[in-house]
Design a binder for these strands. Structure first.
Length: 479
RNA sequence: GCCGAGGUGGCAGAAUGGUUAAUGCGACGGACUGCAGAUCCGUUUCCUGGGGGUUCGAUUCCCUCCCUCGGCUCCA
C-alpha cells in the first residue's frame, strides 16, 4: 500500500499514516452549526476532507467518513428566537441548503451526517460515566466537566489552563467549580428544546455530541479527526478529555488534521465579522470547478486569502487554461466514440502521460500537497496545449491514454467534471446556425455583420474562437 | 500576556542543506487573425521579514527580534 504522509496536529509533525484496522479508515470531520448560510470559508475545509477521503480510497483504503451536524446550540437558539422560528427546523433548513451546495461542489465522500439531537441517549450515557468516574459534576441543573481532573488537558493545543484568560470572551458561569470547566449538559431554559435527564431537563453542550457520536460509530479510538484550525481549542481539546475520560482509552484519535482559515483581506471569514461570501452565491457566480481549484491552490494548512473581484477571477482563468486540453480530448471522444481510428501516440506524449499518474499519487500522498499536484497537471496541460491540433489525429485508445491524468484528477481532486448542460439542447442547434451565418459574412468581407453575431453570442455567454476556417465555441464568462 | 500558524517576485502561492527558487494570474513582445478580451510561443536575469549562529554552502537547521493571522470556552 502506498506510503501516505499526514501532518498530525498532536505530534506537530508529518507522520506516516497507519490506520488501526487497515484497510478500514475512520474519518470524522467537525461539520457545521447550521444557524445560517454556509460560506466559502466552510467549503474550503470540507472540500479538503473530501479530497482526503477520495485519495485514501484511491490508495486502497476503505474510508468511513462522518460529518456531524450541531443542529442545536446557543447560536441556533438565538437566531431562531430572532426570526421567530423553531430552532431545530431552522437548523435543518440550513443543513439541507448546505447539503445541496456540497452536492454541487462534488463533495460526495461523506457517508453519514449525524445530527446532535439524534444522539441524546448516547450523550446521557457518556455524562453518566463521566460523573461516575469523577470527571464531571452536576450543579444547578447543569453538568460540567472538571478540567482539573484530566491532567492531559491542553496537550493538543499547547494551552496550559492556568495561562488561560477566563472570561476573555464570554462571561464566567458562577455554577462552575473552576472557570475553565465546560458545560456538557445545559439546564433547560423555558421555550427552548430540552430533554429529560437524571439532572433535570436540559440539552447537550457543544463538545459532547461529537464524542457521543464517534464512540457509537467508531468506538473508543479511531484514525482521523478533521476540522478547521479554529476548532483545536477548546473544541477538540475538550473532545479528548471527554472521550478518554469516559472510556479510559487513549488516544481517541491517531491523526488530528486541521485546515487553515480562509481569510478575507487578511481577516478570518466569519459570520460574526460580517465579511462572508455565501457559498451558494459563489457557486452561482463561478461554478464548482473554480471554487475547488481555488482551494487547491494553497496548502491546506496555510491561511488562504480571498479577495473579492480577484481571487475567483484568477482561479477561473487558471482553471480554464488547465482544463483546455482535457475538454478537447473529451469532445473528440464524445463526438467519435472510443473506437475512433487514428495514429498511435508519439513516444514523448505516451511516456509523459504514463509517468505522470505515479507522480501525481506520490505528490498528493505527501500530506495532501494539492498545489504541487496542480503544478504537475499544468505541465501536462501546457504540453498538450502546444500540440492541440495533433489531438485530432490520434485513435481512441491513444486519446484515453492522454486523458488518464485528467481522469485521475477527476476522481481524486474532483476537477475536470464537465457540466452536463452544454452542447446539448437548444444551443446545439442554434449556435451552429449563427456560426454559419457569421462565416458567410466573413467570407464576403462583411465584418460588421460578423462582429454583431459574435457580440450577440458573447452576450449570451458563448465565446468564439477562430482557427483558420474553423470556429469553435464554448460557454464562458466574458471579461 | 499565553498557545498555535504564517511572512517568498507586480499579485496568488509551492518547494528544497547545493546548477537558472515551481506553478498560476497579470504585464510585455511575437505568431495566428479582417480584427479580437479567444488560442499558441517567448520574456518577465535585480523575490525567501530584520539580525546573529551552525555549515564548504542556508530560503531550508538553531537562536533572537519585528510584523500578520487564528485561538484563549460561539466558530470550518
Amino acid at each position: 500500500m502506498r506510503r501516505v504522509r499526514v501532518y498530525d496536529s498532536m505530534a506537530r509533525e508529518v507522520r506516516d499514516f497507519a490506520p488501526i484496522a487497515p484497510p478500514r479508515v475512520g474519518l470524522f470531520v467537525c461539520g457545521l452549526t447550521p444557524y445560517d448560510e454556509a460560506h466559502i470559508g466552510h467549503a474550503r475545509t470540507f472540500v479538503f476532507f473530501d479530497i482526503v477521503a477520495r485519495a485514501l480510497t484511491r490508495w486502497g483504503y476503505r474510508v468511513f467518513s462522518v460529518q456531524n451536524v450541531t443542529n442545536l446550540d446557543d447560536k441556533v437558539i438565538e437566531r431562531a428566537a430572532e426570526i421567530g422560528a423553531d430552532p431545530l427546523e431552522l437548523a435543518e433548513r440550513h443543513f439541507l441548503e448546505w447539503a445541496a451546495s456540497a452536492e454541487r461542489l462534488g463533495i460526495r465522500t461523506v457517508n453519514y451526517y449525524p445530527h446532535a439531537t439524534d444522539y441524546i441517549p448516547e450523550i446521557l450515557t457518556q455524562i453518566r460515566s463521566l460523573i461516575d468516574r469523577g470527571f464531571a459534576y452536576a450543579s444547578e441543573g447543569s453538568v460540567y466537566y472538571e478540567i482539573a481532573k484530566f491532567p492531559r488537558y491542553g496537550e493538543l493545543s499547547g494551552q496550559r489552563t492556568e495561562a488561560l484568560r477566563p472570561g476573555a470572551r464570554i462571561e464566567v458561569d458562577p455554577a462552575k467549580r473552576a472557570p475553565e470547566d465546560f458545560v456538557i449538559w445545559k439546564a433547560a431554559t423555558p421555550g427552548e428544546p430540552s430533554w429529560e435527564s437524571p439532572w433535570g431537563p436540559g440539552r447537550p453542550g457543544w463538545h459532547i455530541e461529537d464524542t457521543a457520536i464517534t464512540l457509537r460509530l467508531f468506538g473508543p479510538r479511531y484514525d482521523l479527526h478533521g476540522g478547521g484550525l479554529d476548532l483545536i481549542f477548546p473544541h477538540h481539546e475538550s473532545e479528548i478529555a471527554l472521550a478518554e475520560g469516559a472510556t479510559w482509552e487513549s488516544p481517541l484519535v491517531n491523526y488530528w488534521m486541521h485546515g487553515g482559515m480562509l481569510t478575507m483581506r487578511g481577516e478570518k471569514m466569519s459570520k460574526s465579522l460580517g465579511n462572508v461570501y455565501a457559498l451558494s452565491a459563489a457557486l452561482d457566480e463561478f461554478g464548482p470547478m473554480v471554487l475547488r481549484f481555488f482551494y487547491m491552490n494553497a496548502h491546506y494548512r496555510s491561511p488562504l486569502d480571498f479577495a473579492r473581484g480577484q481571487s475567483f477571477e484568477e482561479a477561473r482563468e487558471a482553471y480554464a487554461t488547465l482544463a483546455k486540453p482535457a475538454d478537447r480530448i473529451a469532445e473528440i471522444l464524445e463526438r467519435d466514440g472510443p473506437e475512433r481510428p487514428g495514429v498511435d501516440l508519439p513516444d514523448d506524449l505516451a511516456n509523459e502521460a504514463e509517468g505522470l499518474i505515479d507522480r501525481l499519487d506520490t505528490t498528493l500522498a505527501d500530506d495532501f500537497n494539492t498545489r504541487e499536484t496542480i503544478a504537475l497537471l499544468f505541465g501536462f496541460s501546457r504540453l498538450l496545449s502546444s500540440r492541440l491540433a495533433e489531438l485530432e489525429s490520434f485513435h481512441g485508445a491513444a486519446l484515453e491514454e492522454l486523458r488518464a491524468p485528467y481522469a485521475w484528477a477527476e476522481s481524486v481532486l474532483g476537477l475536470f467534471v464537465r457540466t452536463p448542460v452544454g452542447r446539448t439542447g437548444a444551443w446545439a442547434t442554434i449556435v451552429p446556425v449563427a456560426l454559419a451565418a457569421r462565416s458567410r459574412a466573413r467570407a464576403r468581407g462583411d465584418f460588421a455583420e460578423a462582429d454583431r453575431i459574435r457580440d450577440a453570442l458573447a452576450a449570451a455567454g458563448i465565446l468564439l474562437e477562430d482557427h483558420g476556417s474553423e470556429t469553435r465555441w464554448s460557454f464562458g464568462t466574458p471579461k
